[in-house]
């Protein structure tokens, strides 16, 4: 239980404990979560790859461990998983760079 660091890999197994102190909301979250990851218009495998990419953007080490394994279980290989992360990284860097237009606008406004 005791751990000096902020991220303890063992804590992932205790994720269910977030229902403590707020059972109704906690249960609703887990029901929703389970439903989201079921096979639907997207396959379980596609959802795992999306989750892996998002996990890198939100920089959640628990999610990275969990969805790396989920991707492997669903037959994804290293190339596909790395490509998924690049998609996330491209959107993330693009989201920064697009503000360059705002910078350009401001430069044009402020300079001769």
């Amino acid at each position: 239980m005791a751990n000096d660091g902020y991220f303890n890999p063992e804590d992932l197994k205790r994720f269910g404990e977030i229902t403590r102190y707020q059972q109704t909301l906690g249960r609703k979250f887990f029901d929703y979560y389970r439903e989201v990851f079921k096979e639907g218009a997207l396959t379980v495998r596609e959802k795992a790859l999306i989750a892996l990419a998002v996990a890198h953007v939100v920089q959640c080490p628990y999610c990275i461990d969990a969805y790396t394994e989920e991707c492997l279980k669903n037959g994804a290989d290293e190339e596909e998983m790395m490509e998924a992360i690049h998609v996330a990284a491209a959107i993330r860097s693009g989201a920064s760079l697009v503000f360059g237009v705002q910078m350009i606008n401001h430069i044009e406004k402020k300079t001769m």
Binding site: T43, R45, E69, E70, L72, K73, N74, G75
Partner: peptide, 9 residues
């Protein structure tokens, strides 16, 4: 690790 669903794979 365990394998996922046969039909998906």
């Amino acid at each position: 690790f365990l394998p996922s669903q046969q039909c998906t794979l």
